[in-house]
Write a protein that binds this DNA or RNA. Sequence first.
DNA 1: ACAAATTATAGCACAAGTGCTATAATAATT
DNA 2: AATTATTATAGCACTTGTGCTATAATTTGT
Lengths: 90, 90
Amino acid sequence: MKKDETKSRKLIFDQEGLESLAKRLKEIRSEKGISQEELAYRSEITLSQIARIETIKINPTVSTIFKIARALNVTPSEIFNFELNSVSNE
Amino acid sequence: MKKDETKSRKLIFDQEGLESLAKRLKEIRSEKGISQEELAYRSEITLSQIARIETIKINPTVSTIFKIARALNVTPSEIFNFELNSVSNE
DNA sequence: ACAAATTATAGCACAAGTGCTATAATAATT
DNA sequence: AATTATTATAGCACTTGTGCTATAATTTGT
């Protein structure tokens, strides 16, 4: 059997949604006038992780976002307050 | 140097938030009267993954939730429409 | 222009999310 | 009660999120 089966393991990096999330997060953070570092401290998420999220390098877990939401004193709903248009990325 | 440094690597499984998410997801899904299997098909997420989320076995990524939101024809905000109370889990 | 603060990158180790497949457990229907 | 549909578990392989640490790049303030 071949080694490279082109296994078409469908992966999940929702570019559109993650962009919206990043944008929303930056918005809220700057509205509240707190730095990434401060947010990292408050949420107990590392600075590198905050940066990765805002620069759309990773696909964070919901727990991470929950922690950030608490640190920003907003509801999860407020962070996810945007629409999803396109049909994901094929 | 010791091998077991009790490295206290702080991990992130937000029990409260994930419970709320699971509950909300079940709600919406049954409101719309669609099965886990149907949702899996529509969202292109595996059935096992849907089940894991609803039974709070895992901490899904936001992309996964975005896919589900699209499949359910709701905004991300609607899925995350709940409050976070306690201060995470220490 | 310089210094300081903020944001962005990078690499490593480890934990965990996801797909895939199969099966068990439970609920619903007849 | 028996069948069927739905939901829940389980294990493996693979990918990736996260913490940690350090450094680079950029922005802000003077």
